[in-house]
Structure formats: structure tokens, C-alpha cells
Design a protein around this nucleic acid. Structure first.
Length: 275
DNA sequence: CTCGCTGTTATCCA
DNA sequence: GTGGATAACAGCGA
């Protein structure tokens, strides 16, 4: 499900339900969900209290009071639901955390791509996945000075570069298409052909897009829901993602869909020309 | 039925 | 380094 706005929405939802609560019981129904030793995961999480739910790019960080953090990545379709209703658990519920108030924090993932890992809270910076992340939108490191060299050093299509979480993090397939449309950049433009103005646009528009998407509760295209089971609204504001065959909101030319780096890519062939 | 597609990322190989 | 393919998995629609 998630790009940064969706993960942020989940983070906020989880915080409102689980912060300050003890995890009294853990059930892992799909062992591959856990990176590392499953029994150790269960042992360390059981009895711990959730002090805060944070986020770095698309990673959820469930901080515990015992010095450990559950690093949770939802990948394509991972979801958290808070419920005391046994019917909320189904065959796609792979982890069930029972809380001291009787509620259950249920991790669902139809495709089983998501992963959880326990890590020392003080050492998160050295976790391999977290370590390699580039600056994310809306953070103070997300500046022209930082991003320009990171982007320009690549000779690949700009779409590929923006999806590369080690260059900058947080954007995924939907929002990269949206940002490139707004910046009037063809997704197959080679990254080092961009002008300073283009880089500046990418930064500003990424910030705008993330801010707006978070305010809208994320995009529900196929399956995304937040911790309360609610859909987002941002899908109603998308300009090109999933809009192939419809007129470009700017010039009326039909939006087309191609493959770039194996990912479905939507753009306006009139507004977005290869440099 | 089969094929292709899906908000992700890690890994392997030329 | 880079590019591409492949893998993890399940469901949906054509």
C-alpha cells in the first residue's frame, strides 16, 4: 500500500490507539514476516510498552520501552488494523499484538511482502535499510544543495532515480508520476540532463505533494486503508496516476501509460517532453 | 484458463 | 557502477 503519506497516516492512527499501551501477547502466523529470529522477536516484544510510533521514509518505527524498536515496512499491501473484534482477523493476518486494553493491533498483508525487524532503538541509524535512505520530503535535509548532487550523479531515467530510496526517500510509484507531471518532466529524461530549476521544482513539488497527500489521509487506489479501516482521499486529487486515456488537466492531451524500469508510468506526452 | 498487472525492495548476474 | 531480470506472494480483471 504505502508511500510516505500513507505510512504517515498509519503512524498517526497507530499512535492514537497504541501509544502507552503494553503488548501482552504476540502471535506470529507467518514466520517469514520477521527478519531475524522469530522466537527472540516474540520474547522481546511481549511485555513491552509502546512508547511512540515514528517513521523514517516508508518505514514505521514502533518504539518500545525496553530499548528496542520494531522496524516495520508495509511494502505493497501491508496494513495495520486496531480492533477487539475477532472477526477482524483473517487468513491474511500475519501478526497479532494483543494490548493491555483488550484491543488487538493486527498486521494484515495479502501479498506477504511486508517485513518486521527488531532493532536497538539507539542504533537505528546503523540498520542496513534505514542507513541507506536519502533525505525525505518535508525534512530539513531535503534541500537543493543536498539533492542536486545526489540526483545529477545518475545517468538513469529521472523516474528511476526518484524511486531510488537511497537518492531521496519517501516517494513511490504514484507520487513520482504526479511530481514529474507537475514539474513538466518526462519520466525518461536522463537525470543529469536536468537544470537547476528542474531540481528545485522536484524538491518544492515533492514537498507540496507529500503535504497535500498527508492532509488527505493518503491515496486509496486498490487496498490501502488506515489503522481505523478508513480510506484516504488523495486518489481524488491525482492528475496522471491511473489516468491513462483521459485528458491532461493542463493541456487536454491524452495521458499515456508506458513502462519505465518495469513500473507502470503515466505522463502527458505534450507537457512532458524528453530533454 | 492464462496472462498481465499491482502504492516495494533486495539480490543476482552480465 | 548500471541495467535488467527475478524473487518474495495473492488476487483481480481482461
Amino acid at each position: 500500500m504505502p508511500e510516505m503519506p500513507e505510512v504517515e497516516t498509519v503512524r498517526r492512527g497507530l499512535n492514537s490507539y497504541v501509544k502507552g499501551h503494553e503488548i501482552t501477547h504476540v502471535e506470529i502466523r507467518y514466520n517469514d514476516l520477521i527478519t531475524g529470529d522469530v522466537n527472540q522477536f516474540i520474547e522481546f516484544v511481549t511485555g513491552a510498552t509502546i512508547t511512540d510510533v515514528g517513521r523514517r521514509a516508508k518505514f514505521l518505527l514502533i518504539h518500545l520501552d525496553n530499548g528496542y524498536t520494531i522496524i516495520s515496512h508495509l511494502r505493497m499491501e501491508g496494513k495495520y488494523r486496531i480492533s477487539a473484534d475477532p472477526n477482524a482477523i483473517d487468513k491474511h493476518s500475519h501478526a497479532i499484538f494483543t494490548l493491555d486494553n483488550g484491543q488487538k493491533m493486527i498486521y494484515n498483508d495479502v501479498r506477504k511482502f511486508g517485513r518486521m525487524q527488531l532493532w536497538n532503538t539507539d542504533d537505528l541509524k546503523n540498520n542496513k535499510s534505514i542507513q541507506k535512505l536519502g533525505p525525505e520530503p518535508l525534512s530539513k535535509e531535503f534541500t537543493f544543495e543536498t539533492l542536486k548532487p545526489r540526483i545529477m550523479r545518475h545517468h538513469k531515467d529521472i523516474k528511476i532515480v526518484l524511486l531510488d530510496q537511497s537518492v531521496m526517500s519517501g516517494l513511490g510509484n504514484i507520487y513520482v508520476d504526479e511530481v514529474l507531471w507537475k514539474a513538466k518532466l518526462h519520466p525518461e529524461t536522463t537525470a543529469n540532463h536536468l537544470s537547476d530549476k528542474d531540481i528545485q521544482n522536484i524538491i518544492e513539488l515533492s514537498n507540496q505533494e507529500m503535504e497535500k497527500a498527508i492532509a488527505s489521509g493518503g491515496s486509496t487506489i486498490r487496498s490501502y486503508i488506515d489503522a481505523s479501516g478508513h480510506k484516504g482521499n488523495m486518489q481524488n486529487s491525482l492528475k496522471v496516476y491511473g489516468k491513462e486515456g483521459t485528458p491532461c488537466p493542463r493541456c487536454g492531451t491524452e495521458i499515456v501509460k508506458i513502462k519505465v524500469g518495469g513500473r507502470g508510468t503515466h505522463f502527458c506526452p505534450h507537457c512532458q517532453v524528453i530533454k
